[in-house]
Design a protein around this nucleic acid. Structure first.
Length: 570
RNA sequence: UGGGGAAUAGUGUAACGGUAGCACGACUGACUCUGGAUCAGUUAGUCCAGGUCCGAAUCCUGGUUCCCCAGCCA
């Protein structure tokens, strides 16, 4: 009897995405002799962003899960765009994300010699030829999406002539752009990539790694499959726009009778409220809308790092978004959720006042200071406790007081009693204003019986406020960040405008005179904290012993802000 | 009829001919010395039209919409 439903632990098992399914199936059928070898192959022409993280986590993740190997390979076939600076940053970022290529660090340029030999082979097979058409002529001969191309007049040169010319191309006899090596496929193919694609162009340019050894450089389609083949990659995972290139990838390796990995395509990551294309990010940098690639508002890995993101949060995000073959835009709220989830577990709590409002406790003994015990992380018992100084002059958050509190405002107001976290219950007795009517100081009384924050008589308060002791607090600068763009889709701009018209003018707010508790003295750049009731913050590299600087990584979930927003709308 | 891909709650993803599920978001409520966290609950979906089948998100036919391709970029 087998008609009872299977309801065992298999239902708990995480389902595999379509790429992992292929890998698992290949392992089962022993298609690649039990090997799993992937690669992350960036061109070192810019900084990595969260979209790359998706690809990195996919490739390195698959290798890790299936006991395989993932190579880091720089696809450095175009010396006019590539720089060592980018190579260094990519290595740093992949490592920071927590992945290890275990010695398998390669460069496409390592294979230039082999690629050249392969090209000679193809020529000898009559499958490639040297073409003297200019770039413009080549375009004309290619035809269009709906019209077939026509054969180059150089298409039927003899093997000997091709060999001779190709060797002389390599030797540097011809100027840039004067000739190319092309694959001889089909000028009327419906797939434009198959209309005798260029394999080599002449470029008298110094390469970051091979210097001026070469003056002919392989094109992506020619180089990439060979790189994969040479490294004996099993699954060559790339993004959707290369789907049209797969027939060519396959064609080269078939004609060469070379080791032949499987190319698999998946959809790029898009995120709401930001842009992901290198071109647009570069524009933001060049036009000064952000302070460089590592600006904490950028979706670059270095930007996220400076913002205070943890590698764990980014990896968890990449795990949750899944992998698919259709374009989608992930809500940045999911990234922020993964961030808070990680930071909540790992960040020590600390009290900091962003917009200070002076509070004087009138009945607190003159000159007295107490060291009160505070819990470092309620989510982590091992994090222990610390002492925080309390005195009769404090700062609280300006937003935590309202002279005329609206409905649902639970915080301090005239005559109202609240708790100061880890300290005492206090009641507001007086409000002092300046000549403009602005509140500049509060006077309160405290209840000595509530020391530590509990009332022996069981009295309850509606809210607990964070605070710092005025005489002990450290001054700090805090940088508040918001989404870079005001629209979910920045490209959704009015006629005649582009994505830059949707830049959020309030994406950065600098608060110059914040006060933080003294335990933060000397906090190291990069260290992360939760400022209680406010959010997660990290120490910026600009920070020094004499001047603390924090970045707000992400705010805490804030129901009161939502209530306020809703009340405003009414 | 140029070719290639793809369509599942607001968003992201499962279900591989057999109960459309999960997460994020939003909204309730409980709890709380963070209006945090946690816990419980509510919300809402198979692009359209036919067909096959006892049974279709899944297979077939026909549409619709979206994405990619005309670099000597990757």
């Amino acid at each position: 009897m087998t008609n009872t439903k299977q309801n065992n632990n298999n239902s708990e098992k995480e389902r595999l995405d379509f790429i992992r399914q292929i890998v698992a199936e290949d392992l089962k059928t022993n298609k690649w002799d039990g090997r799993v070898v992937t690669r992350f192959p960036p061109e070192p022409n810019g900084y990595l962003h969260i979209g790359h993280a998706k690809s990195i986590c996919l490739n390195f993740g698959i290798a890790a899960e299936f006991a395989g190997q993932c190579h880091l390979r720089f696809d450095d076939t175009n010396p006019t765009k590539e720089e060592q600076e980018y190579i260094d940053s990519i290595i740093e970022d992949v490592h920071w994300l927590g992945w290890d290529w275990e010695g398998h660090l390669y460069y496409g340029s390592d294979y230039f010699e082999q690629m050249y030999e392969y090209a000679v082979q193809l020529i000898k097979k009559g499958k490639a030829y040297v073409c003297d058409l200019t770039a413009e002529q080549t375009r004309e001969y290619r035809g269009t999406l709906t019209k077939p191309g026509k054969d180059s007049p150089y298409r039927n040169r003899s093997v000997e002539e091709n060999l001779n010319l190709f060797e002389r191309m390599k030797a540097g006899e011809f100027p840039d752009g004067s000739r190319t090596l092309r694959a001889k496929i089909d000028m009327s193919a419906p797939n434009l990539n198959m209309r005798d694609p260029v394999m080599y162009r002449i470029l008298h340019a110094a390469h970051p790694r091979t210097s001026d050894k070469w003056c002919i450089y392989p094109m992506y389609d020619w180089a990439h499959g060979l790189e994969d083949s040479i490294e004996r990659i099993t699954h060559s995972i790339c993004t959707l726009e290369f789907e049209n290139h797969r027939p060519l990838y396959d064609w080269f390796l078939e004609k060469l009778d070379a080791y032949h990995p499987q190319q698999i395509e998946f959809a790029r990551l898009n995120l709401t409220y930001t842009v992901m294309s290198k071109r647009k990010l570069l524009k933001l940098v060049q036009e000064g809308h952000v302070a460089g690639w590592a600006d904490p508002r950028m979706p670059t890995i270095c930007g996220l790092r400076r913002r205070g993101y943890s590698p764990q949060a980014i990896r968890e995000f990449c795990r949750r978004i899944g992998v698919n073959k259709f374009n989608s835009t992930v809500d940045i709220a999911l990234l922020e959720h993964c961030l808070r989830e990680d930071l909540n577990k790992t960040s020590p709590r600390v009290m900091a006042v962003l917009k200070p409002l002076k509070v004087v406790i009138d009945n607190y003994p003159e000159g007295q200071v107490e060291e009160l015990e505070a819990i470092n992380n309620p989510e982590d018992p091992n994090a222990g406790v610390r002492k925080v100084p309390f005195s009769g002059e404090l700062y609280i958050e300006r937003d935590d007081f309202m002279e005329e509190p609206p409905k649902k405002f639970y915080r301090l107001a005239p005559g109202r009693e609240v708790r100061l976290r880890y300290a005492y219950f206090v009641t507001c007795t007086d409000v002092i204003k300046d000549e403009n009517g602005e509140v500049v100081e509060l006077h309160c009384t405290y209840d000595p019986a509530t020391r530590g924050g509990d009332a022996p008589d069981g009295r309850k308060v509606k809210s607990t406020l964070h605070w710092v002791s005025a005489g002990h607090a450290l001054e700090a600068q805090v940088r508040l960040y918001d989404h870079l763009f005001t629209k979910e889709n920045p490209d959704d701009a009015v006629e005649g405008e582009d994505f830059k018209s949707n830049l959020n003018p309030n994406s950065l707010e600098i608060l110059a005179s914040c006060r933080v508790e003294p335990s933060l003295a000397g906090a190291a750049p990069g260290s992360r904290y939760q400022f209680e009731r406010l959010g997660y913050f990290c120490v910026d590299p600009d920070s020094s012993d004499s001047k603390l600087v924090f970045n707000r990584t992400v705010s805490l979930r804030d129901p009161w802000a939502k209530i306020q927003k809703a009340q405003k709308k009414k």
